[in-house]
């Protein structure tokens, strides 16, 4: 009914939702610069990039899923699943690149399956991906026969995980830049990005305006699975080892937290990929801060929780 068209300047809250993660990231850096010893050095930057790159892949994937109105909590297990395929392949004498592709294709196929169940059959995304999280972890452990793979002897793994360019610049910076460019490009500039937002905003209206919503949702979960698989490969290489029970455990929570802090609406319909990137860096930087100041690691989870609750509280629908 009679809603008044109000031209208001951006309120504090709106500014915070839009740019909050970037502001918070800047704040966190400033805080560290003042408090943490040896923080302001290139080494810290390289360390953060090295740590953040794998999880950034997952966070970008999660941004797609959440802005389409869904959620994917199977991504942590997806990492390990991709990791085990590559590990088994190369320890049996296979080509590293070939088995990476096999792993990513397998992840993509599972993502398509997830998307199909959600879009066509109508299974709740939270429940489905929770089940998939458990199942994928189980399959991974079975494939590994519960053993830990040490992969330090494989030159490709070593290069992808530990190589540094002159000036101690880690190899991860290539992927760091690539995923940011790709994420921003797809969500800002392409039809797919617009369709994802449309489906998240109003799925019925999207269908009735000719958006093939089933295909969009399948695509979104496929992207999420492939990016999670990539995250698995990068993380496995960084560790130069694969523990099928542990790799990727609870990573999905950091990714979801990064998206939430970044200002993407948890109800879907509004993607803020730049915010997600900043949110992801915040999550990593909190870990670094805690680490460099000698605070117990478990404390970082409490700080993260506080930040997430604040981000969600400020995102709430205005009641009046």
């Amino acid at each position: 009914m009679a809603e008044h068209v109000q031209k208001e300047p951006l309120s504090f809250r709106e500014i915070f939702i839009r740019y909050g993660a970037v502001i918070a990231l800047a704040g966190l850096i400033l805080f560290n610069a003042l408090i943490t010893k040896n923080f302001l050095s290139l080494n810290t930057l390289w360390l953060v990039i090295k740590q953040a790159t794998p999880i950034l892949f997952m966070t970008v994937g999660m941004t797609f899923v959440i802005s389409s109105g869904g959620i994917d909590i199977s991504t942590g297990s997806m990492m390990a699943f991709c990791g085990i395929i590559v590990s088994l392949g190369i320890t049996n004498g296979g080509n590293f690149i070939f088995w990476c592709i096999v792993g990513l294709v397998a992840c993509g196929a599972i993502g398509v399956f997830n998307g199909w169940l959600i879009a066509s059959v109508g299974v709740q995304p939270v429940i489905l991906t929770l089940v998939m999280q458990i199942v994928m972890r189980g399959i991974t452990v079975l494939m590994a026969k519960s053993s830990v793979f040490v992969l330090g002897g494989f030159p490709e793994v070593k290069t992808l995980g530990l190589y540094r360019f002159p000036g101690r610049v880690p190899i991860q910076i290539i992927f760091f830049v690539l995923i940011i460019l790709a994420g921003v490009f797809v969500l800002w500039k392409t039809l797919l990005g617009k369709y994802v937002e449309a489906v998240g905003s109003n799925p019925k209206a999207a269908r009735l305006t000719g958006v093939r919503t089933v295909a969009v949702i399948i695509g979104v979960y496929m992207i999420s699975a492939i990016l999670a698989g990539s995250c698995g490969i990068l993380e496995m290489c960084r560790n130069a080892a694969l523990d099928p029970n542990e790799l990727g455990k609870l990573y999905e929570l950091d990714a979801i937290a990064g998206v939430a802090v970044g200002g993407t609406s948890m109800k879907g319909g509004k993607a803020n990929v730049v915010g997600s990137i900043a949110g992801c860096l915040i999550m990593v930087l909190i870990g670094t801060t805690v680490n460099m100041n000698g605070i117990p690691f478990a404390a970082s989870n409490i700080i993260k929780a506080g930040i997430i609750i604040f981000a969600l509280a400020i995102q709430r629908e205005r009641s009046v």
Partner: peptide, 9 residues
């Protein structure tokens, strides 16, 4: 509302 607009777009 339910089948027409994308409110926040």
């Amino acid at each position: 509302k339910a089948e027409g607009i994308f409110p926040y777009m």
